[in-house]
């Protein structure tokens, strides 16, 4: 595990949607890792959104809510990858499914790998 000359290694886990990590080679595949979270909408935000629904435009409250949720899902995936001893997660994909009224599941998955 020697760092290549001229290549700066960012701290922590490298996340990418590619099948490899540019500038590195994959030495070991550690399998699929995933993280998910189910979030319900907030009543206050829902009321604000229903007003906004008359005039259109961005629903900032919901954007933030989903961003937070997605961040949490990603953190969970990273934790799982860390447990496996990975230093990168490649080929990451995001997916969303609405489970019930006003609740959404956000999940993220990728392949944990060890790179040189």
């Amino acid at each position: 595990m020697t760092a290549r000359p001229g290549i700066s290694r960012p701290a922590g886990l490298i996340l990418t949607t590619l099948e490899g990590v540019p500038g590195h080679t994959i030495v070991k595949h550690l399998g699929l890792v995933q993280g998910s979270t189910v979030r319900a909408k907030h009543v206050g935000r829902d009321i604000a959104a229903s007003f906004k629904n008359l005039i259109g435009g961005e629903l900032k409250g919901y954007t933030e809510l989903l961003q937070e949720a997605r961040h949490e899902a990603t953190q969970r995936m990273m934790k799982e990858a860390n447990k496996l001893g990975a230093n990168a997660v490649v080929n990451i994909r995001y997916a969303t499914s609405s489970l019930a009224q006003g609740a959404a599941e956000l999940f993220v998955y990728g392949t944990a790998v060890q790179i040189d």
């Binding site: 008359l54 954007t63 989903l66």
Partner: peptide, 10 residues
């Protein structure tokens, strides 16, 4: 990652 929630108007 970039995301946005957008609403329709009446």
């Amino acid at each position: 990652v970039g995301s946005v929630v957008i609403s329709s108007d009446y």
